[in-house]
Design a protein around this nucleic acid. Structure first.
Lengths: 185, 185
DNA sequence: CCTTCTAAGTTTAGTGCTAAAGTCTTCGAG
DNA sequence: CTCGAAGACTTTAGCACTAAACTTAGAAGG
């Protein structure tokens, strides 16, 4: 193959190239908005890959780590029902049944019927699970500190505050204010 | 059931409650870092749900929309191989084979062998696909504008710039600088 | 009581993904 | 020229998820 133009082979666009390309194809695009949204999306994808690798080193999956986090967040004695777990993680109850199966088999949680209301099930963090969570948390917080390394304290504060404002807008969208953000849950 | 303490039923923690709970369980946590990271994660989850609903109204899935976006980003004549698509979307080539099957059946793309190199396949956007992309893009950019409604132009600029700096840190991590961010691709 | 209703989980069928093995084309070396 | 190796998909087996049907326990009414 000796073409004069040696097939360059397409390359993954940088963020700036991406925004420029979208503007070519779609005039009405606000580049400032697109920068925020695209950077958010890319950042999150990269971070999730990184988290996955970190917790994999501890022998758990990202999915399992999410469950551990949710149980710890509920506070001692670290108990929640499968339905509640499913709701908080955005899964169906059916999926949580199987996740809890796997995690119980690995000893990260126990699964028992509630004695006071025998239709309910209680998923409870074991000591092993709590230790795994702690190890994962240490790795995650090191990673996060590293991620924000280039930002000053002031910048971190500003970034956090701006993100929280976006989050508020998306969480309790006020439809009466003409907002287009309908219920998201 | 007339217990004195009417089983409150656990509730989904707000962002502030979440950070406070983590601090109780894990002393070394920097709340400022955690605010940024947790807000990022929540925001992204909500946004993905919202995007999914929007494009579902157009009769396509979030997965299909991602493929349409990638093809449009590649510029005219909107052609890429399944392998390249898979790499950019973080999927295996096998998954892309099936996605392209479905999208070709719906008329969003065509799939043909490259005549110059018959081991290669070319996925090309159809006019129908391009139109779908445009419709989805209009909905998405309206949604994004709405999301950023509460931020001034200056604030949008600052937010974009800060996010881009984080993205740079995570994309070309400089391991020689003592960074802990190892290769993420 | 005995039925009906509702809530909480589980089970089943089907979809979309990954990992690994397989196919087919092209390239390079003897 | 022929064989072997590499590259670019596709196929297969298995897993995790969703939607919808099913099971069972407790609550409400007649």
């Amino acid at each position: 193959m000796s073409e004069s133009t040696e097939e360059p082979g397409p390359h993954e666009p940088s963020l700036d190239e991406q925004i420029a390309a979208y503007q070519r194809e779609f005039r009405d695009l606000d580049p400032q908005v697109e920068q925020v949204v695209s950077a958010l999306g890319r950042l999150n994808r990269r971070m999730n890959v990184a988290y996955g690798r970190q917790v994999a080193a501890l022998g758990i999956s990202n999915a399992e780590w999410e469950v551990l986090k949710t149980l710890v967040l509920s506070g001692a004695p670290y108990r929640l029902g499968p339905g509640e777990l499913a709701k908080r993680l955005g899964l169906t109850p059916a999926a949580m049944t199987h996740r809890v199966d796997r995690m119980a088999a690995e000893g990260l949680v126990t699964r028992d019927r509630d004695e006071n209301n025998r239709v309910r099930v209680i998923v409870e963090l074991t000591d092993v699970g709590r230790t795994k969570w702690l190890e994962a948390m240490r790795m995650a917080s090191d990673f996060e500190e590293d991620l924000l390394q280039d930002l000053s304290g002031d910048e971190r504060g500003v970034l956090g505050e701006l993100l929280v404002r976006l989050l508020r807008r998306v969480e309790h969208a006020q439809p009466d204010a003409g907002g287009r953000l309908t219920d998201l849950d």
